[in-house]
Design a protein around this nucleic acid. Sequence first.
DNA 1: ATGTCGTGGACGCCACGA
Length: 259
Amino acid sequence: MRLATWNVNSLLARMPRVVEWLPRVRPDVLCLQETKLADVAFPSAELRELGYESAVDGDGRYNGVAILSRVGLDDVSRGFLREPGNPQRERRSIAATCGPLRIWSIYVPNGRELDSPHYTYKLEWLTALREAAREELAGARPLVLCGDFNVAPRDQDVWDPSAFVGLTHVTAPERQAIAELVALGLTDIQPRALKGAPFTYWDYRAGMFHKGCGMRIDLMLLDDSISSRVTDAYIDRDARKGQKPSDHAPIVVDLADPL
DNA sequence: ATGTCGTGGACGCCACGA
């Protein structure tokens, strides 16, 4: 079984890239973040022609998440219990049962600046996510929690730790939140990079991609019970190249069958 | 070099989020 997660930074703008990528890489499940599309505008028919069902949660300009699956898409759930809002609930999480797995596609708030209310919101959101994940881990199916976490878990997950002093994504509270999530019984799968450091995001500005200045902020957290089933995991760095790329690359994880 | 993108409002440029 092949799983993937990709922050596409507008699915409408990224459809040419996604439509080229899906039939070539053929994931069984693809989790999307930052679709930036209202549900009514989601290109479900075009994706269905490629063999994928869609579960979506979006309301327009910002955020928006989805799960595409060709192995079943049941018991769809949007948001989670006691999810904080900004001030209303944002479209940052969707869950579905895809074959043998319970899969969550999540988009953690960015946090902006350390003194911003958005940073507090990010930490509260991560705490609530942890409690929701604790409940899900008690369920019948192994849990996959993946998406854009907007946190680089370790110093080696950013191109230069000294460049991030005083910035979000690397602070102790953010890293602690990820560590507590993982401690519930999840494994942070370490994908091999096809070239260079194992980053999943490179800022569009200042030629950061070409300089190799990226971050690993997209994560695939697998239930400990299936982490030994991983046969391969990689970051598709090539997806960050070429015409109109997202600023994130997809993570692809292969699991041995049957689970 | 805060140097790029993407969206949407109101119009060819700005605000906002990342």
